[in-house]
Structures are given as structure tokens and as C-alpha cells.
Amino acid sequence: MDDIVRQALAKWPNVPHCTGWLLFDRRGNWRMRDEAAQAAGALGEPIRHTALLGFINRNYEADDEGQWFFQNGPQRVYVELVYTPFVVRLATDDATGKLTLTDQAGAAFEPAAAYLDDEGGILFTDKSSPARIAVLHDHDLDLFSEHAELAGDGRSGQFLWRDDLVLTLEPVRKAEVEKRFGFVGSPAARAAAEAASDSDKSAR
């Protein structure tokens, strides 16, 4: 977290949280969602400003309930996730010929386990604690397939990450990823449900 953000939090600790306005899409793009986009259920407009993207990525964290947010100064801006909290790119290092994985911020992502969902998506968890869950960018599926072997049923297999490390491709249902890996895909929907429940209780 940036020092300027820590200072803002110390100065204004009780700024209300924000939900619904920031979205992280399936290809690792950050998107702003105005009221019209939210009402239409649209993804919103991609953020292109390099400095702002860096600021978001440096101050992107999860709370104790698995809700991911961008700490924008004193305000916590909760993020709507199209799929996972991280998207990774697979590439081949020109110097070594080895595969590399990097997250949306360009940081190295060292995989510890690999998964194949029921829609053909590839996911990885890393070696951090707690482990991060990331989906592979769909543009990199061809490169992935060059280093993977699928079982006959197409639901499992293995991925040759390094000469000495083969990752088993474990099957997982896309609808179960959020619960299995402990994150909240839509903090806005969760906040709305909690507000409705509180309103119902007060009306009784």
C-alpha cells in the first residue's frame, strides 16, 4: 500500500465504502462503471491511464471476508470480479526458453497448482499465503496447450511448467470457484442482500 494512502486512512478513517463502480474483467482490465453501466449490467469503460492503473494495482487487497478492493486514499472501493481476482499471462522467456506467468500488474506469478474448469478455462493458485487464484488470459490458451496433456475425457490432465515440475490439472466447476477459493465475486450484490435482510428484520 502506498504511503500516501496510509496517511489518508489515518487522517480520515471513517470514509464510507464504495461498491459497484470498479470492475475487473476476464482479461485483466480495470473498468469504471457509472450509474448507467451499473443499471444496464454493463462492464463499463476500460481504464487506460497508466499512472492510475499502477496506483490501483499497488493498492489492491482483500478484506477478511474475501472481498477485493482498491484503497483509493481514505475510501475503500470494492471491486466487481467477472471471474477471479487475478488474471495471468503465459509467455516464453526469450533468454531462457522457460515459461513465465505474470499477473495483471506485471508481477511474477509462481504456480503451485493448476485447474481446468468446465468451460475450458485454466486457473492457477500460487505459492503465497494465502494463495492467490488467477485465471489464464484466453489469448494464451494456445501456448498453454503446447505444454499440456489432456486426459481422454477432456476434464483433467497435466501441465509441464518446468522440466522438473509437472502440475496436475484438477477439474473444477466454474460456478464453484468463488466459494472454493474464498473470494466474493460481487461485493455490491452482497451489500445489497445484506441491506435487504436488515430492512426485512427492522420491518418485523
Rank of each mutant, 00 (worst) to 15 (best):
K98C: 01
F24Y: 10
C18H: 08
I4K: 12
D63P: 07
S156H: 03
L53P: 05
R162N: 04
R6A: 09
P13Q: 01
A188R: 13
R33G: 05
I122Y: 01
A107H: 13
H137C: 06
E119R: 15
V77W: 11
S186N: 09
H49V: 02
L165N: 05
A107K: 15
D3G: 01
E65Q: 07
F55Y: 15
R180P: 03
D117W: 01
N57T: 05
R26G: 00
T92R: 15
N72T: 13
A95Q: 12
D198K: 14
G152W: 10
G41N: 09
G152L: 11
H137N: 14
S145P: 04
L160D: 07
A191M: 13
N57D: 12
A51Y: 10
D103H: 00
R31F: 02
H137R: 14
R180A: 07
K174L: 14
A8S: 11
D126K: 04
Q104P: 03
L52S: 09
I122R: 02
Y78A: 10
V135W: 08
A40G: 06
D118I: 12
T19F: 14
E176M: 01
A62H: 07
N57M: 00
A36L: 12
D200I: 08
E176H: 03
V79F: 08
K179Y: 05
D34E: 13
N59S: 11
G66K: 09
L123D: 03
L141P: 03
L136D: 04
L99G: 04
R173D: 15
P171T: 09
R33A: 15
R173G: 14
E35I: 11
C18P: 00
A107C: 06
A112L: 10
A131Y: 09
I47K: 01
V5S: 12
G97H: 01
Y83G: 09
P130F: 05
Y78F: 15
G41P: 11
E149K: 09
A203K: 15
L169D: 05
V135K: 14
S199P: 05
L123A: 05
F86V: 01
K11G: 05
S202H: 09
E170K: 09
F69Y: 14
Q75D: 01
R155C: 06
D2P: 04
N59W: 14
S199A: 15
G157M: 13
N57Q: 10
A192D: 14
A95R: 14
Y115D: 06
N59D: 10
R6F: 02
L43G: 13
P85N: 04
P13V: 07
K174G: 12
D140H: 15
R180D: 03
I133D: 01
P171K: 12
L52G: 07
A191V: 10
F86T: 03
D25F: 00
R180N: 03
E146Q: 08
W68E: 02
F86L: 09
P85V: 00
E176L: 04
L123W: 06
L123E: 06
D2Q: 14
A113G: 00
R31N: 11
H49P: 00
F70L: 08
S128T: 15
G106E: 07
R6K: 14
A108I: 06
S202P: 06
A36H: 03
L116P: 06
Q7F: 04
R180H: 00
L169Y: 06
N72D: 11
P187F: 01
A42V: 08
Q75G: 00
D200E: 14
